[in-house]
């Protein structure tokens, strides 16, 4: 009998994912479920971002002075666009994935076909990013609609936020999936939200300039994909991208790839016994 060493622990988690075109079939399943519901859900993703944008932008904005030529709503808008896309990807990869993985057995069912578990993970991540993109399109359209009145968008460069939204969704979705894959129970996802996502939300540089916070806090904040994306979104809204933005894109790519890699390893560790 040949004893086969089973790769355990960290080596197994970090092993290269086994991917195929079936990841797209997983994506298509999610798309088909969404397309049945999208009309009824159409306005749902807009309610909260619009409340924040106009409630804070116009209400709080009256008391905020950022210097000439910078209204608070214009400061706020890029961050709102990034955040509420990000939330959608996070929800998909927390509760959506947890239900499919633990309650519905979808991961096991698909892994019984020629698709691999890594295909399922990648398919779900691509889908979460797609939801981030779809929500971003909605929000950007509304911002565009109000731009003549409030002077929010200043450049067609802002359209480049959409491919970035996909990347942001991938990075934040993968990060969330890493936690979902180790969640012992669904209530754990609430902790993840309170302890990780909400701080990321507040420290993203959306509501206040990060330069005015303590240095250590800035370092923490810049570790989050949301902060990186928000900064670049803001440059694109103003039509003044800087070389540093290319670095931001590279960082987002790197974070997305690293988290997706680890997430698929953690899902394998959880489900392959």
């Amino acid at each position: 009998m040949i004893a086969i060493a089973q790769p355990r622990g960290l080596r197994n988690v970090l092993a290269a994912p086994d991917l195929s075109h079936h990841a797209l079939n997983v994506w298509r399943r999610n798309r088909d479920v969404y397309l049945k519901l999208w009309k009824t859900e159409l306005f749902l993703p807009l309610i909260e971002p619009l409340l924040v944008l106009f409630g804070m932008g116009l209400g709080l904005g009256k008391f905020v002075s950022l210097g000439i030529d910078q209204s608070y709503i214009r400061f706020l808008a890029p961050g709102v666009l990034a955040q509420f896309g990000m939330f959608q990807a996070t929800f998909e990869c927390c509760w959506g994935v947890y239900f499919r993985m633990e309650n519905h057995g979808t991961y096991q069912a698909v892994a019984s076909t020629p698709a691999s578990l890594d295909d399922v993970v990648l398919g779900d991540l691509l889908w979460a990013s797609t939801r981030c993109l779809v929500n971003s399109v909605y929000i950007l359209a509304v911002i565009l609609a109000f731009t003549p009145h409030y002077d929010i968008l200043r450049s067609p460069w802002a359209l480049l936020t959409l491919p970035l939204a996909y990347l942001l969704g991938l990075a934040m979705g993968s990060l969330s999936l890493c936690f979902t894959a180790v969640a012992p129970a669904i209530s754990f996802l609430g902790y993840f939200f309170s302890l990780v996502i909400i701080p990321i939300f507040w420290l993203s540089g959306t509501f206040f300039p990060l330069e005015r916070t303590p240095g250590w806090l800035q370092i923490v904040a810049w570790a989050s994909p949301l902060t990186v994306a928000t900064s670049t979104y803001r440059h694109l809204f103003d039509g003044k991208p800087v070389p540093q933005d290319l670095l931001h894109v590279a960082v987002l790519c790197l974070e997305a790839a690293a988290c997706a890699w680890i997430a698929s390893g953690l899902v394998r560790r959880r489900l392959i016994k």
Partner: peptide, 24 residues
């Protein structure tokens, strides 16, 4: 499998059609 792992978000027929995709 031992537990029912059908997809509850889609119809009975779609459960068959979507599964068939994984077999190309």
């Amino acid at each position: 499998s031992q537990d029912d792992n059908l997809d509850p978000d889609i119809t009975v027929r779609q459960n068959l059609l979507f599964y068939a995709r994984y077999f190309d």
